[in-house]
Design a binder for these strands. Structure first.
Lengths: 141, 141
DNA sequence: ATTTCTCATGTGCATATACACATTAAAAAA
DNA sequence: TTTTTTAATGTGTATATGCACATGAGAAAT
């Protein structure tokens, strides 16, 4: 009879471990731009989404709302992003300012460097399946 | 001519995103055991490595030494792990205590539940390539 | 033996992340 | 209209993570 292969690794541990290294790498690469990797990610996301409510943004990043707000604060202070209240409700919408778009574009070469380095480690198939797997995992709720 | 596919995702962002969700999931699952996901990971790692120096442990987890020490503290207090100094040097060795081994084994069912859930999301091929890719990425230094 | 150097460790600070609880404005129900 | 409910926010606390810098004990060089 076929014995189920024993699980020896842990998704959580493996993901966290890789994330630590990769985050360090991107932070290093982004240093000249003055942006942290999380800030780059936020600006980039806003650039693609356009104006969104806090909740939508948090949800789409799978990020705790309060964490999002705190991460957003320095970007608000630098006026890389702005907020506007939604007519007649108390909800807000966040959007990327021209200044923010500028910062994002200025940081793109740094980002690209890190990104290219990592791509170099994986085959096309690995990259594509990695991405696909991550997308499945991030929906495990 | 073939245009290189434009890179639209970001390794760092994608990893962090999935890691957030997965970590939440494991923390939830581990709740009854009283261990946090990071603590489970530490105990588990120590269980497999046996006594190791702080530096080796940090290195093998790709974890900042200071972070490791701080994550280790509550486990030391609960006497799940112990330390001993290495003869004639000022270096330390960390090891899993019987109490710690106990805690680890008690938490295993909770962990397994989360682990099984995630496995259910991926095909065997996806799992295996994911793991392989993560291992490559975590060496990007 | 004294000086220098290396390496294990410690401390302080900043960001990233989540959760629980409080607050309050808008919407829905009574 | 008053009450109730829901949903957007805000606050406090705790863990996770990394970096820069300080300290101090052995090891190596002089």
């Amino acid at each position: 009879m076929k014995k189920t292969k024993e699980t020896t690794f842990c998704y959580c541990t493996a993901l966290r471990k890789a994330t630590r290294t990769v985050s360090r790498m991107y932070n290093k690469a982004l240093e000249p731009s003055g942006l942290l990797s999380t800030q780059y990610a936020l600006l980039n996301h806003l650039n693609r989404l356009g104006p969104v409510s806090m909740n939508e943004l948090a949800e789409s990043l799978r990020l705790e709302r309060t964490t999002l707000v705190r991460n957003l604060n320095p970007l608000l202070e630098q006026e890389f992003v702005g907020t506007e209240s939604i007519q007649g409700t108390k909800a807000h919408r966040v959007f990327l300012t021209p200044l923010g778009k500028n910062a994002l574009e200025g940081a793109r070469p740094c980002w690209l460097k890190a990104q290219r380095t990592l791509r170099g480690y994986l085959s096309e198939e690995e990259e594509s399946i990695l991405l696909q797997a991550l997308q499945k995992l991030e929906n495990c709720r």
